[in-house]
Design a binder for these strands. Structure first.
Lengths: 290, 290
DNA sequence: GCGGGCTGTGAAGATCCTGTGACGATTTCT
DNA sequence: AGAAATCGTCACAGGATCTTCACAGCCCGC
């Protein structure tokens, strides 16, 4: 049951540009009739989907890179709440639709509070399930469609989302996918400091565990390539204890300030200078178990 | 009924780091009992909210700058669908929860497809409505384009939480994480005196043990950096036996006061100085209290 | 005016954080 | 299948930051 979906994972849930990726959803249920009807419907919609019958460990779900998950809590047994909480914590971007038998208000509230996005009571019409999943997924996605393909410039580098590549004077930096996603994300937030956790969750799609150094490592790789291609600029700035900030900063300015070349009367425009500068949860409801 | 909500959201109760803006929701319904219970609940949660009884034109809703809207389609009559569609089109970021009487699957599907985020069938428990609204709002758009954090100014310094840094005329103070958190906290409580214990517990997250001097040390570091970058101002004021207060105070004023009487050879002993300072402080306290 | 407690200050040591190179696992390409 | 490219994890080293400590100066009540 840990088998992972083999299809390419290009459906990277939250790439900064958010490709118009295929929807991928999973249904965790045992009600064969329900599953059958729903599957058929999903097929017709062309949504990539899979059915899970056993209580998949929350971690395994993470590996599936889903857009949404429809789950009958009954399948999970007594640890349903714990499972739900863990899953929601790990994948804040995953759409979770609980579709289960009769429940109390308190149960529904609890589920929603834990992070579920919707709660449908069986018996229900598959069409409604679909509609609710769609609704959940719709809200999950950023509208900033791929269309805005205007290249971003910063210092010497040009970031072209349409090419998934960054360039310095038409020379590609040969960024890998992750590297590109990273620079795109950073550049999109130019000026602002992005915390590691945010970078991680937006690039990897799930929440970062303490001690993970992936972000740092990719920042380093990115810095190397940037440095090699555009040595007179610094782009990624470290904010100790917080994260990183993207801003093109020329290194030339300073050296010029220091050694005033009397022999060569160069008129330095103020561009560089200014460039530098610009650069409760109330628990009144009883939480009874299912 | 187009009156806009006047209360500002700046009452960000969140700690120094969090920019959790106030939730603002509206309820469009006529069921007085339902409304009453729901309102009471919303009050207790501290959510800014308002009740609408008549079919507000979609455009008017736009002006309300809501986070979410709970609506009974029955109030809207025959043009409910059209209204819903228009609203969803105009405000894709607005959370819309339909809460209405018995309906068919087809109706629910239609509503959700048009852009509603959830659909609750009356009669329902207000707690569930709240939970679902929360769920919808939680999933609201991510901070890719959010520039909502407006910089705070005090004297010469500008505190930008998006950069985790304070500036004086575009020159960074190079505050460390803790230092920044401290100045942010102090500035947010401008005018008020914050006790050490409170500062400590809000910055460190746990209660301060007696004798801990961490707060003092950081106040000192902060003062040093502020002093160096903005010498003509005093920002952090000590309140003996209590804690600290943040308030930009120009030092120029005093020098003017001092040089007024050249004829009378007054010996300025320390008493007078403190006297002066005290009155000024008092004056400021009063004004701040307003 | 005196004394005790509170605050300012400087520095040293403990801690935590980031940069870096390398390695094994996995995926993709040939 | 074999090779190449990518990815994610580790351990280590160098720094930056935080905490603690001792001492000096200041404030307030007596």
């Amino acid at each position: 049951m840990t088998e992972s979906i083999t299809a390419r994972d290009e459906a990277a849930p939250s790439g900064p540009g958010g490709a118009t990726s295929q929807l991928r959803i999973a249904v965790l249920d045992r009600d064969s009739g329900f599953i059958q009807v729903l599957s058929k419907r999903l097929d017709r919609l062309g949504w990539e989907h899979r059915v899970l019958a056993s209580p998949v460990p929350a971690d395994a779900v993470v590996a599936m890179r889903l857009s949404a998950l429809v789950v009958d809590l009954a399948v999970l047994g007594p640890q349903a709440w714990e499972w739900l909480e863990r899953l929601c914590g790990a994948l804040p971007d995953l759409g979770i639709v609980v579709c289960t038998g009769p429940s109390t208000v308190a149960q529904r509230v609890r589920g929603l509070r834990l992070g579920a996005d919707d709660w449908i009571t069986k018996p229900c019409h598959p069409e409604e399930v679909i509609a609710r999943v769609q609704s959940v997924v719709r809200r999950r996605r950023r509208p900033s469609g791929r269309t805005e393909s205007k290249p971003v410039m910063a210092g010497d580098v040009e970031i072209r989302s349409d090419r998934f590549q960054a360039f310095v004077e038409d020379a590609s930096l040969d960024l890998t996918r992750r590297e590109f996603e990273l620079i795109e994300l950073l550049a999109a937030a130019e000026g602002r400091v992005l915390e590691r956790e945010e970078i991680y969750s937006r690039l990897w799609g799930y929440t970062m565990v303490r001690g993970d150094r992936s972000v740092d490592v990719f920042v380093r790789k990115l810095r190397q390539k940037l440095e090699k291609a555009s040595p007179r600029w610094r782009y990624i700035h470290t904010h100790f204890g917080i994260g990183y900030r993207f801003a093109a900063e020329s290194l030339d300015v300073e050296s010029v300030d220091v050694e005033i070349p009397p022999s060569v009367p160069v008129a330095w425009d103020a561009r560089d200078q200014s460039e530098l500068a610009r650069t409760q949860e109330d628990r009144e409801l009883t939480t009874d178990a299912l």
